[in-house]
Design a protein around this nucleic acid. Sequence first.
DNA 1: GACCAGGCACATC
DNA 2: GATGTGCATGGT
Length: 214
Amino acid sequence: MLREIYDRLYAAYGPQGWWPGQTPTEVIIGAVLTQNTAWTNVERAIANLRRANALSWIALRDLSEAELAALIRPAGTYRVKAVRLKALVNYLWQHHQGCLDSLLAGPLDQVRDRLLSIHGIGPETADAIVLYAGARPSFVVDAYTKRLLHRHLLCDEKANYDQVRGLFQEALPPNAQMYNEYHALLVAVGKKHCRSRADCDGCPLSDLPHVTTP
DNA sequence: GACCAGGCACATC
DNA sequence: GATGTGCATGGT
């Protein structure tokens, strides 16, 4: 069924062209900045960083936390995110000499655990980094994904992150390009539909099995 | 003027 | 271990 849903969404919406970052570094910064935040606000923050020549790991290392916070302010929760970006930058320099390829190298599960050990990087951010910066097949689960699966009776309402991720990874081949598109497609359909029970009109999945109670 | 957005850490029970 | 809460800007 998860393969069927992918095919339908792809047919309806086409390739999404995620992640909208120009370099792996930019993708990773965006992954932290977008936590609980609309992407348009993340773009403003990244534009500030670019204007300040701060889109590099050296520059980010040398910025103070307060300077960084000021630059990323449009992304919201900027004090928290400045702490998180600093934790990531410090980890990269302390454990990988500032080398991103080194941070992302090794068995996928090891890389994921490595990222999860960094303060401010939870499962969704870690998977987004592995998938969209590392181009490796770690499925990204977000609120849209959980909601859609629950509405279509494919997971329990209280299923946790790793359970939902496991459903996708068991049903699909470990194909990073496909995981990439699928996550983006789930966000696309989730923004238009599946928000309330009245949003099913025109949804490419509206004829699939569906919850009948709120 | 609420309500929400590619979450996460921390406190409390 | 399971909920509840703070973080904070900009769009709808």
